[in-house]
């Protein structure tokens, strides 16, 4: 089989999650010039918001419901946005002001990741306790969820298609277009581009550079949180779910060149497709060669790592730096 519809739908959800995460990671990198190693754990916090919504809104009783999305998308945007804002205001900005080297800033983000995962673990312990001791037997069934829950059983379907396969791409398109309009059509968005390009000049013109950077971090965190809501529909809930995912997120950002939001989104999407279809076709080929069923889903990050290595060694500035006009005309796609 050359194309598999279900695989394509699953990939749409997963790849748009990576698109959102790579785009928002790129935003924090443009602003603060430090790769945020806690970024995928931002998404994990968003994922936990879904479990909390499933519990508090009683969705565990009623079954699949749109409430999962209505409630957890805004909730995760605000909560994770606030986490990202605090990371910038309390940790990264003071350290950068003190002139700490980039190595120091990176290890600080690794420290934040450890703290966030610790907090998620504490929350997971709390939730397990609450679920276990509940008189409600439906709720007691959720006891394994905080550390290994498949929340996709609570998401609705649209004509047989899981909502995440449609909402994911929709969210990515809306936020990319929204970002574009915000940055080019609004005064504050223009000020954001100005402050990122030349903070000194922006400061002398009376632009509040610190406010601009704070807003950027909040939005980046919020987008990562919403990506986490979609992400948890494609995988298992766990406090350390971000640790392997960060490989794919960095791959997407590096493919995009870590310099442009649009290309960050494209990079994330491409890496998502590369991983999913790479695994799928490798399985088919290895299966045909060995005559056995081969399952490689757990090794999808191999393709991301490959993308990072190839990109850094071949085109370190990412896809954004390539001369697309020339490439298209070479390929005969444009005259």
């Amino acid at each position: 089989m050359v194309l598999n519809v279900q695989l394509f739908l699953d990939t749409m959800a997963y790849a748009s999650v990576l698109g959102l995460l790579s785009m928002s990671l790129t935003l924090t990198y443009i602003v603060s010039r430090v790769p945020n190693f806690a970024h995928a754990t931002f998404a994990a916090i968003g994922s936990y918001m879904v479990l909390i919504v499933v519990w508090l809104l009683g969705i565990y009783k009623t079954g699949p419901s749109w409430g999962v999305y209505y409630a957890s998308l805004p909730l995760s945007f605000i909560v994770v946005g606030a986490v990202a804002l605090l990371q910038y205001l309390i940790v990264l900005r003071p350290l950068a002001k003190k002139g700490i080297s980039i190595d120091g800033l990176m290890i600080a983000t690794l420290g934040i990741d450890i703290i966030l995962v610790g907090l998620l673990n504490i929350s997971a312990d709390f939730l397990e306790d609450i679920f276990q001791q509940s008189p409600d037997k439906d709720l007691r069934k959720l006891v394994t969820y905080p550390r290994s829950g498949y929340l996709s059983s609570y998401e609705p379907t649209i004509m047989g298609v899981t909502a995440s396969s449609i909402l994911g791409p929709l969210l990515l398109v809306v936020s990319t277009v929204g970002f574009y309009l915000f940055l080019t059509k609004t005064k504050f968005g223009t000020a954001m581009r100005a402050a990122i390009e030349n903070p000194q000049l922006a400061e002398t013109l009376g632009i509040n550079v610190n406010l601009v950077y704070s807003v950027s971090w909040f939005i980046a965190g919020g987008l990562a949180g919403m990506a986490g809501v979609i992400m948890v529909m494609t995988t298992k809930l766990n406090p350390t779910m971000g640790w392997l995912l960060i490989v794919s997120v960095f791959a997407g950002s590096i493919v995009g060149g870590l310099g442009s939001l649009f290309w960050g989104a494209v990079g994330g999407l491409l890496v998502g497709f590369l991983e999913q279809f790479g695994v799928y076709y490798t399985q088919i080929i290895l299966g045909a060669l060995t005559g056995e069923t081969v399952s490689l889903g757990n090794y999808r990050q191999v393709f991301s790592l490959g993308a990072i290595v190839v990109m850094l060694l071949v085109a370190p500035q990412g896809l954004a730096s390539l001369n697309w006009g020339k490439i298209l005309s070479r390929l005969g796609l444009r005259r």
Partner: peptide
């Protein structure tokens, strides 16, 4: 740093 972390996690 990104490359080394990615390789290790993988």
């Amino acid at each position: 740093a990104i490359l080394l972390l990615a390789a290790a996690e993988m």
